[in-house]
Every structure is written in structure tokens, then in C-alpha cells.
Design a protein around this nucleic acid. Structure first.
Length: 432
RNA sequence: GGAGGAUUGGCAGAGUGGUCGAAUGCGCCGGUCUUGAAAACCGGAGUGCCGCAAGGUACCGGGGGUUCGAAUCCCUCAUCCUCCGCCA
């Protein structure tokens, strides 16, 4: 949610920025400012009427006190009560009006996305994303190289049909060395994050409504989350939700910044939609594993932090020896809450396509405003902090790329990247 | 799941219808004293919103209600504690 006081300084500039993400309702900004003006006026009036009522009540209190000693004052007190009772409805009326306007204002603000950073490339579609960097070497596979779903079946690493039996499509079951490889990736990602100073957390995967609201999953994206029918709880679509919400309604001492956290969790996404080759195998799932990194930082250092996070993720794909590229998302492809996002994609050798494995974003104050996440500066003034997060990394597509790129011909198995061998306990999986 | 008790400022803890945004203690910040520190003493200090300011207003777990007036009474939800039941 945009911070209105900042917006007020230069609404036209804000509109110009929003045009970069092809936001088609710039008039909502004006509407928000108008509603805010109305809110202020109503509140002033409400406060004033309330002040009068409070003063009257105090007077009555005094009279009642006097009446205890001097019964002749009792009648006066009763008269004052009656008079006060008559004027009573006014405060409530105004109060209702204030609440109504506040609600309207929030409804409008919820529809306005974050302002894109000046570095965001123009453009509407994924084709317009800017390739920042490429690295690694695409594997030279033989013509009969298999896609990861065939490899998974051949070596009995992942059973997709079994997942259908247990839960539904998009809930694969990892088995034997496949499960071990998952666990290896999780452990290795967590260790790297810890090395980089992110404090490991194991949060709940179920979150309440306030948390889902805090990071922006509610009210709009309700359909993307699984919810529990009777409990008013949601399955977190990413560890970003529980991690970031740790700082909901918190004033952090400036000295504690930056806050760096990481967590491994299962992630749950409904993403009801298409079927076909784009979502085959591990390409798109309802439940997947992910290690997430989150930072809460001083506003002046958030882009530094973003670069740092990108460098961290890059070091991971490099160490796994996966061909990768880093994209700076264009205005049209960026998430609603982000100011600047970098996506990481790895090359999936047999599918011959790039797969998104990480998204690293700076939200500036957009999340913090909703969360009421602030820090106290040197003058003890409260300011909104900046929040960032990124996947480091999401497992399924990393697994897909590893299986495909590292496959040996003639059914000889999959080569385990060197950094994972200690966790997996072998150099090749799938061999008999 | 059943029965009972609780939720007040950073922490502890008073307050059960009126001058209570809230005693007191600890902790914290500033000062006096001291070579320095401790002790002692003096002073300061919550958050949001409205306002140029003075000031106003709201907040005693959340929401709703009663009342001229609610931390205090009522309803409801959440959380915690004790006991019982169940359970990894």
C-alpha cells in the first residue's frame, strides 16, 4: 500500500512512474488524495465535537461529586445529564462518516500498485524483460536426452502419479535418492544463507488473516492461497509471509538494521489454471519446497541490499554449475507490490527452455506501510523501513534442470553437483 | 474437548463507573555530585491521527454494547495459565 503523505508531495511524478507499469487508472491517485482530504476534515470536526462532549461529561462528574455533599445540586446534575444525552448522536454520526471515508480510502489505495524504480525497463510482456547477465555453460546433450519427468520415472526419484493418489496433480512424491537430493538442496541452501548472515527461522506454514493481509496476499489474491474451511487460516504460498510478518506492528531500533532472515518451508499455491507441457513434471506445482531470504533495511540502503541478495542467489546457481540468466523485470511483468525485481532463470537442457527459479525484489515501503513496520531514527522519529525478499532458492525447477543437464547417456544416472555430494552421499544418483 | 482464572506502559504491578494516559517499583535517557564509576538526588520519556502551533482526539488483548461519562459493567472473539480428558 502506497504511503499517502509521500505521494502527496508530487502526485504527477507518481502517475508518471505508474505509467511505466501500464497502470490504467491514474485517476485513482487523485481520488485517494481527495478522500484523504475529506478524511482529515471529518476527523477535525469529529475531534472537536468529541472534545465538547468530553468537557460536558467532566462537568457532570463534578456536579455529581458536589451533589453527594449538597443534595440541592442533584437536580442540576440531572438536568445536565439530560442535555448531554440530547446532543449525543452527533459524535456517533461523525464517527461513522469518518470510518466510511477511511474504508473508501483503503479500498482505493489497495488498487494502486507500487511505484516502479527508475531502473525498471519499459515494456509489457516477459519478452521485454532486460537480460542483466548470463552465466554458466549450456550442456551439450545428445539427441535422445530425456526430460526430467522421464528421468524421474526411469530412476524412481519422483512419482507424480502417486501424488495424484494422495492429494491431486501438482503434489509429487519424492522417493529414495530423489528425496535425498531434495533434502541435500534444502540443507545446502540453508547453510549458504546462514553463511551470508541470514538467521534461520522455522515458522508456521499456516498463517492467519492478518498475516496474509500484511504481505498483500489478501484481500485481492485470495484465490491463490489454500485456506482452511473452519479455521480462518491459510497455507502460506511462500515463507515471505510468516517471515515478513514477524515485523508486523514493530518499531525496530535503527541499530538492529539490517534484519536478515531465512527459512525453508513448503509453499502452497492453488494457481488453478492451465495444463500442458509448460506445467508438466516439476515445472509448476501446488506444493513445492523453497528457501526464502528476507531483509528489513534502512531506506537508504535497500538497493545495496537488493544487489547483495542478487549476488547471493547468483553464487548459488554458479556453485550448482547451472546455466543461468538474470532478468530485470519490465514494468508490465513486475509484481503488484514490487519496486524493482530481478528474476533468475536456469536452463533446462532437455526441455530447451529457461525456468524461473528465483525472484528477488525490493518493496521499498510498500509492504512496510501495510505492516506498520518502522524504525526509530537518530532523532527518535519513526520512519517506514524497506523490505526485500528473494528465493534462495525454489527447489523444483532447480531439480528439473539438474536432472536434465546432468544426465548421463545410456541410463547411467544423474551426476550430483560437487557441492551437494556430501549431503547426498554419492556422485551419481540413479545408478543401480 | 470440559471446568476455572487471567490479559494494564520496556518489564513487574496498582487501579473495579467521574479530575486515570493511568500509582508505585525496576529498567532506560539527561543532569547534579565524583578524578572516573556506583550510590544518592533532580529531571525526562508510549503510539497513531488532526493541527503552522497552542492544543485536540483515539488507544489499558481485538471487536461490539450500556452510560452524560468505561481500564473499571455487559456480550463476543483471541491468547495465556491451572486442572481433567486426548495425543506425537
Amino acid at each position: 500500500m502506497l504511503h499517502l503523505p509521500s505521494l502527496r508531495q508530487d502526485p504527477e511524478a507518481a502517475k508518471a512512474r505508474l505509467a511505466h507499469r501500464h497502470f490504467d487508472q491514474p485517476e485513482l491517485l487523485d481520488k485517494a488524495l481527495e478522500l484523504d482530504d475529506r478524511r482529515k476534515a471529518l476527523q477535525s470536526e469529529r475531534d472537536q465535537v468529541q472534545a465538547e462532549a468530553n468537557a460536558t461529561a467532566k462537568e457532570i462528574g463534578k456536579l455529581m461529586g458536589m451533589a453527594k455533599r449538597d443534595p440541592s445540586k442533584a437536580a442540576e446534575a440531572e438536568a445536565a445529564k439530560k442535555a448531554a444525552a440530547e446532543g449525543k448522536g452527533r459524535v456517533q454520526e461523525l464517527e461513522k462518516e469518518v470510518e466510511a471515508v477511511e474504508q473508501q480510502l483503503e479500498d482505493v489505495l489497495l488498487q494502486i500498485p507500487n511505484l516502479p524504480h527508475t531502473n525498471v525497463p519499459p515494456g509489457k510482456t516477459p519478452e521485454d524483460n532486460a537480460v542483466v547477465r548470463e552465466g554458466g555453460v549450456k550442456p551439450d546433450l545428445t539427441a535422445d536426452a530425456e526430460a526430467h519427468w522421464d528421468l524421474a520415472a526411469r530412476y524412481n526419484l519422483i512419482d507424480f502419479e502417486l501424488g495424484v493418489k494422495l492429494a491431486g496433480s501438482g503434489f509429487p512424491v519424492y522417493i529414495g535418492q530423489g528425496a535425498r537430493l531434495q533434502r541435500a538442496l534444502i540443507a545446502w541452501f540453508l547453510d549458504r544463507a546462514a553463511d551470508a548472515g541470514y538467521v534461520e527461522h522455522m515458522p508456521s506454514v499456516l498463517v492467519n488473516e492478518a498475516s496474509a493481509r500484511g504481505t498483500g496476499q489478501l484481500p485481492d489474491k485470495e484465490g491463490q492461497m489454500y485456506g482452511l474451511v473452519d479455521e480462518n487460516l491459510y497455507l502460506a504460498p511462500t515463507a515471505e509471509v510468516p517471515l515478513t510478518n514477524i515485523y508486523r506492528d514493530v518499531i525496530v531500533p535503527e541499530a538492529e538494521l539490517p534484519v536478515k532472515m531465512c527459512a525453508y518451508t513448503s509453499c502452497f499455491r492453488r494457481e488453478a489454471g492451465s495444463y500442458g507441457k509448460d506445467v508438466r513434471g516439476l515445472n509448476r506445482l501446488h506444493q513445492f519446497e523453497k528457501v526464502e531470504i528476507v531483509q528489513v533495511v534502512h531506506p537508504e540502503r535497500s538497493y545495496e541490499a537488493l544487489d547483495q541478495m542478487v549476488a547471493h542467489v547468483e553464487s548459488l546457481v554458479q556453485a550448482l554449475e547451472l546455466p543461468y540468466r538474470i532478468l530485470r523485470l519490465c514494468g508490465g511483468d513486475m509484481g503488484f507490490t514490487s519496486a524493482l525485481t530481478y528474476d533468475f532463470e536456469v536452463w533446462s537442457g532437455a526441455q530447451q527452455r529457461w525456468l524461473e527459479v528465483s525472484s528477488v525484489s525490493n518493496f521499498e515501503t510498500f509492504q512496510a506501510n501495510r505492516l506498520k513496520l518502522r524504525f526509530a531514527d537518530e532523532n527518535n522519529k519513526k520512519q517506514l523501513a524497506h523490505t526485500l525478499n528473494g528465493s534462495a532458492l525454489a527447489l523444483p525447477r532447480i531439480m528439473a534442470a539438474l536432472l536434465e543437464n546432468n544426465q548421463l547417456p545410456d541410463g547411467k544416472g544423474i551426476v550430483v553437483p560437487e557441492v551437494l555430494r556430501g549431503f547426498v552421499g554419492r556422485e551419481v544418483v540413479g545408478e543401480i
